[in-house]
């Protein structure tokens, strides 16, 4: 028997959908506009604002920097986050309760404050290179997300499965890779995507840490907007969205498949 859906529910769903997708449509529309100013609906269709991104040297360089920073800091965060989440789930009883809170504390600190203090300490005090400061800053920013997401997927993992593998002769470290990781695969992928997106889109921390010669895409975008109000802003946004979706797809494919192949 088909369930009857209340018309109001359909209407409400549609509203939420428009609310979520609407801005994206406007951005995409504006990016395709042939005008020299931001407008929606687009007047005339043109890809010249996309060409413009690559024509401007600063955009080309910052796209590359953003990708490098995002990939490296995401891997560093996973490298720290996976073992940390594992330890906190596996030894939950033995470890103090505040430890898991400690790992998510950076979320509670306003990003601007975090960015400023990193600038003061890393850049001024230790004279750290800009690129390294960016990696450190982004790793701190995304680590809480990585730990939260992976901890959540570990929460449903039954550690007696790990003991079963060990009792069958699999050494603990090997068990971690062959038994535990495949079972939290979806959590790792989710953490990767979330961390990557957060890093690529970050403004508040990067704005303090970027400097002469090295900038990230959102910061370059901000700088560009201060001078021009052309649809390049929209086309860069579209590019960011495409990039994000592409990374999600790649991660899902590669990470997903290699984990499946044990």
């Amino acid at each position: 028997m088909p369930t009857k859906i209340h018309p109001a529910l359909i209407g409400f769903t549609a509203l939420v959908f428009i609310f979520l997708v609407g801005p994206l449509v406007i951005v995409l529309g504006s990016a395709l506009s042939d005008t020299t100013y931001l407008t929606f609906p687009p007047q005339g269709l043109s890809l010249r604002w996309f060409e413009n991104i690559f024509a401007i040297d600063a955009f080309r360089r910052t796209i590359l920097t953003s990708l490098q920073v995002a990939v490296i800091s995401t891997f560093v965060a996973l490298l720290i986050g996976i073992p940390a989440s594992y330890a906190m789930s596996r030894y939950r009883i033995q470890l103090p309760g505040w430890l898991s809170t400690l790992f998510v504390l950076p979320v509670l600190v306003p990003e601007l404050v975090l960015g400023f203090s990193l600038l003061k300490n890393l850049a001024f005090q230790f004279n750290a290179p800009i690129f390294l400061s960016l990696i450190i800053g982004h790793t701190i920013l995304i680590l809480p997300y990585v730990i939260r997401v992976i901890s959540a997927s570990l929460a449903s993992f039954d550690f007696s499965i790990e003991e079963a593998a060990i009792s069958l002769g699999s050494p603990p470290l090997k068990t971690f890779f062959t038994v535990l990781l495949p079972n939290v695969r979806s959590g790792v992928i989710a953490a990767f995507i979330l961390a990557f997106i957060t890093s690529v889109n970050d403004v508040s921390i990067s704005i303090f840490l970027t400097g002469p010669g090295i900038s990230t895409l959102p910061i370059q975008l901000l700088a560009h907007m201060e001078q021009f109000f052309d649809p390049t802003v929209a086309s860069v946004s579209v590019l960011l969205m495409v990039l994000t979706v592409a990374v999600m797809a790649i991660v899902e494919r590669t990470l997903g498949l290699t984990f499946l192949a044990k």
């Binding site: 039954d158 007696s160 499965i161 003991e163 079963a164 593998a165 060990i166 009792s167 069958l168 002769g169 699999s170 050494p171 603990p172 068990t175 038994v179 495949p182 079972n183 044990k262």
Partner: peptide, 18 residues
Amino acid sequence: AHQRDIGLVFQNYALFPH
């Protein structure tokens, strides 16, 4: 533990889900 060569059967089965 992994060198003890003991067969274990657990309460919650502990099968490898994957």
